[in-house]
Design a protein around this nucleic acid. Structure first.
Lengths: 330, 330
DNA sequence: CGACAAGTGTGAAACGTTACATGTTATTTT
DNA sequence: AAAATAACATGTAACGTTTCACACTTGTCG
């Protein structure tokens, strides 16, 4: 017995419409076909509920309508949001998304890239940390937040402007002594420009600047020790803190609360990312908002148009904005 | 000029090893091959850096090593974590993951299912809300948190036990008057058993029980109004609150803080899901922890072994646990 | 009126793999 | 020692598309 559930093929459509295989293919792919034939084919397609087999298509045409997305971990709200918007933008363009979570593991990043290249995806969008990633010439790649090579487009929000904006806001909110906190890799990636932007803004506004920077693998308890050192007469030396991400802000907020500091009464805090609550409504802290949806859309359009215009800029910066979220007095 | 970058094919390997195409195929697929030949083939594969073309394989073998995952929105921490662990579990089994974010849209759920079925994925893992989902007979499906049909396995954590555990913990922490808060669809899905479990636990521990339940689309401000009604002489009627998810807990906590209530001094709160902080270390609130990693692994193993043993139970419940996270006095 | 071009349908040959029927050895049985 | 039987390599026919050379129809022009 023949498989009942097997989908109809182009051959079936051709037979039903009384035309040849090639004609059906042309109709499916929008090649010029006489109206009378085209109609017969379209009717047959509808009647049989025919859909092209992407594996046959991919084999023949080297075109798979599939894009691989490399992201560290979807469990992090910002990366999760980025993934969601990438999925949406790809869907809108008729592309499927192969998700590859790298878990911040530089080896897994490379393994995934090798894997998806053999799988002949149409392109890769990656937020990676491997400083010496090897990407095949034949697979279009768009990078997020990290400049990998001159010929690989990088999409990021304007991190320098964001850092600058945080300083301006803290100054406008009455802060005098501010502090920058960061943890993360020391790569020369875009988010690390937040610090320079913040320093620039502090200098312009005449704010007193301090900082504490930890690296991957450092014990975050060092932030607690640092903050303790800066308490005098029960008061914190800083009246404003800029955290490199909202995630870090949560942790620092917890530490400060345990130290008896009130937020925003005693210290005002600004984070970076723009993470929102469960209902996607309010921001969970005062924050510099990255335009996640715009970043995702830009990645997708850059990737899909890459071959079209070969004058793609190597860095595309998208504007950030400020949103109050309870950790500042506005 | 021929495409330089095109990958080597089985034919190239066969030529390099001096054997036939079929022999290479056997080696690749683990069929019995003479050791001498096998070695020649393995060497050639390594030398040419050959990898099978999954599109040719999928076309011929109807086996694609790809699983589609339907999830509402990866931007939500719990769904994001589930996605991450699913990705990991699938990778470990050699499967690729096609991500399909449905945005809680029942129509998109159905569209995605239709799409991935035509794309001949090997199976689907879905956390869906459409009460009348149509799933083709030929595509294995494993459902999360929702019983769709008797022949479709459902993986969920033990929601009833979790609700019960929340009541036990609140009682042990000294609560007398507790309240259950929920918002969401009214589907007969597994998470909705949290309420019954909590009621059961309250009755067993002699706690006074109240509840406020909102439905999809309701204005969450109603929770604020409800809580305001239950303030007498500046004190809240409840000394313990069980929120149906951690996400809801965050919002309620924010409301209570704005009302001047201190947590956990005035009210103790327990959520459900087990969302952790940015560094995957601490819990962000006291919570009933769903074993996200175990759920993901169970989904994958159930899906991949489904045809093997056709005696798969229709509901697989995984144990939950309690974790303090600052919103209770422990 | 014959030739030529433009437009468009047709059939066959790929794409890289797997499966199955054949061949070819090497090994065992009587 | 001849025959039967393993064991395993080979070649070929699919799988469902796309593409390309070719054929056929029309219409146009000298």
């Amino acid at each position: 017995m023949k498989k009942k559930s097997s989908s109809p093929t182009m051959k079936d459509v051709a037979a039903a419409a009384g035309v040849s295989l090639g004609t059906v293919s042309k109709v499916v792919n929008g090649a010029p076909v006489g109206e009378e034939y085209a109609k017969r084919v379209r009717d047959a397609i509808k009647k049989l509920d025919y859909h092209v087999n992407i594996y046959a298509q991919g084999l023949k045409a080297d075109r798979t309508y599939t894009v691989a997305v490399l992201i560290p971990n979807t469990a992090h709200p910002y990366f999760g949001a980025l993934t969601y918007y990438l999925n949406l933008a790809l869907l809108k363009q008729g592309y499927r998304m192969l998700l590859c979570c790298t878990g911040f593991d530089v080896n897994r990043e490379q393994e995934y890239i090798n894997m998806v290249q053999q799988n002949k995806v149409d392109g890769i969008i990656g937020l990676t940390y491997n400083p010496s990633l090897e990407i095949g010439e034949n697979t279009p790649f768009v990078s997020i937040d990290r400049i990998i090579a001159p010929n690989i487009p990088c999409v990021a929000s304007d991190n320098f402007a964001g850092g600058n904006l945080a300083a301006e806001k803290l100054a406008a909110l009455g802060c005098k002594n501010v502090c920058f906190l960061r943890i993360g890799s020391d790569l020369n990636n875009e988010p690390n420009k937040r610090r320079a932007g913040f320093q620039n803004g502090c200098a312009a506004a005449g704010l007193s600047y301090s900082e504490k920077i930890l690296h991957d693998g450092d014990d975050t308890a060092q932030f607690g020790a640092f903050l303790q050192e800066h308490v005098h007469n029960g008061k914190l030396d800083f009246d404003g803190i800029f955290c490199v991400t909202d995630g870090l802000l949560y942790d620092i907020r917890k530490l400060l609360c345990e130290m008896g500091m009130r937020i925003p009464q005693d210290v005002q805090m600004i984070g970076f990312d723009g993470i929102r609550d469960f209902f996607d409504k309010d921001y969970t802290c005062s924050t510099i908002v990255q335009p996640a949806e715009a970043i995702a859309q830009t990645c997708v359009s850059t990737l899909l148009n890459r071959s079209a215009e070969n004058s793609t800029p190597s860095l595309i910066c998208l504007p950030v904005s400020y949103a109050p979220g309870g950790t500042t007095r506005d």
